[in-house]
Design a protein around this nucleic acid. Structure first.
Lengths: 236, 236
DNA sequence: GCATATTTGTCCGTATGTATA
DNA sequence: CTATACATACGGACAAATATG
């Protein structure tokens, strides 16, 4: 037997999905990556102004390149740009939550429908994401589990085997991360979804894409409700 | 020899006439708007390098601002950015056509499905786009008719009443315009779709969103086939 | 409501690295 | 291999808009 386990092979295989991260190597993209992480970690809270002078000084880049990075974040909707006022970390409204989940239902369920009419569908990415979610749950690493959940949904969208569908999904999921800081990256928020990930995967493995689609649709509607609840609770 | 053909030089020269569009706020976006139009008109052909020095000189903006505009175009996929090489007008492959139409089926049909579960759906936008298409056809303005067709599909996506769905559709349709220059903005290309726009609208007006969705799906599959044909013909 | 300080928007000059003839 | 053209990134400058006391 080879010293590469099945999951290792899968992990290497799944790296193909990360190739889009390597294509960019400009400074602006690297700066954007740093800020992106800080924002999704909650270090820069929603509404915070991202001021040019201190940040460019702190990161050691010029204002010009920093502004390019800001533009990338604004395009991802993680930040908003107000003319002559600067860029701010996006503040979410209840409407944003509804809108975002409407798009996710449209794209993710649509991806499954599209995958259903393809001849060759590779479920390795989905299986890996579910396995990672289980490991994270056993280790009680709730933040890692949130990331595994993100990967699950990205993998589902990737089943459509369309570069543009995957790219749209990446954009939408980047925004979804903003909700996680809202929900606090807690166990109570993520754990209930583990079983549903597994159930959807089982449907897919049996080739029942239509059943999987319905399960995914219900899943997303429930997640939306729960997030709206957390949102209102925080507001009061 | 430079990779700027004589017609490319002419296209850059003609930019001097666009300087009057630069008067309002958001210079980078205004520059992007000009280049966007020039690209979709076919003034800058696919594969053309968008060189910083001549364009910034012709439009009277700095290279910094121009680079911001390039980034916007790259994000819309109208241009591609290659590190340390510059930005080029996107060259389309047959795979791009298939991928693009797969996304359009997913988004547009998904939007109709979403609209079906909304209580209040306003068809005014769709009706207007169809009417404009008819006027353009009677006046035999085939380029105007292409624009009306774009508006029709955007209006269909807007029925989902989701800011993000509409935004995704705008992105996809911007790319679709690249195909029009490929198909040559001709009567033969656009005219057959007029009747189908009307038929889809009639289904919507009768509240038969499911029937409209099927008609739209067939419409998009046919359009894809025709475009692939035009693509291969041009290649030979 | 006004004067001041800060910040953004935009431009320029330049040094360095990279690709191509 | 060299030379040229170009993109990348920096730092400084100034006007205009905005925020602050």
């Amino acid at each position: 037997m080879s010293n590469h386990s099945a999951s290792t092979v899968d992990a290497i295989e799944a790296l193909h999905g990360d190739r889009h991260l390597l294509e960019r190597s400009g400074t602006a993209e690297r700066v954007a990556a740093i800020l992106r992480q800080r924002i999704t970690e909650g270090a820069f809270l929603p509404g915070t102004r991202l001021s040019e002078p201190p940040i460019s000084a702190a990161l050691g880049v010029s204002r010009n390149t920093l502004r390019e990075a800001f533009q990338l974040l604004a395009h991802e909707r993680l930040a908003v740009h107000e003319l002559n006022r600067g860029v701010f970390v996006r503040e979410l409204t209840a409407d944003d939550i509804c809108d975002l989940y409407a798009v996710r239902r449209l794209v993710e369920c649509g991806a499954l429908r599209r995958a259903d009419e393809l001849v060759d569908v590779d479920l390795a990415g989905v299986e890996l994401a579910v396995a990672d979610g289980l490991s994270a749950a056993e280790a009680e690493e709730w933040r890692a589990m949130g990331m595994a959940s993100i990967r699950f949904h990205q993998a589902v969208a990737d089943l459509a085997a369309s570069e543009r569908v995957s790219s749209t999904m990446r954009q939408v999921l980047a925004e979804t991360r903003l909700f996680f800081v809202l929900a606090g990256n807690t166990r109570a928020f993520f754990e209930p979804y583990l079983a549903r990930h597994q159930r959807i995967l089982r449907h897919l493995e049996r080739g029942r894409f239509d059943v999987a689609e319905q399960a995914l649709d219900r899943y997303l509607r429930d997640a939306e409700k729960q997030l709206l609840l957390a949102y209102r609770r925080r507001r009061s």
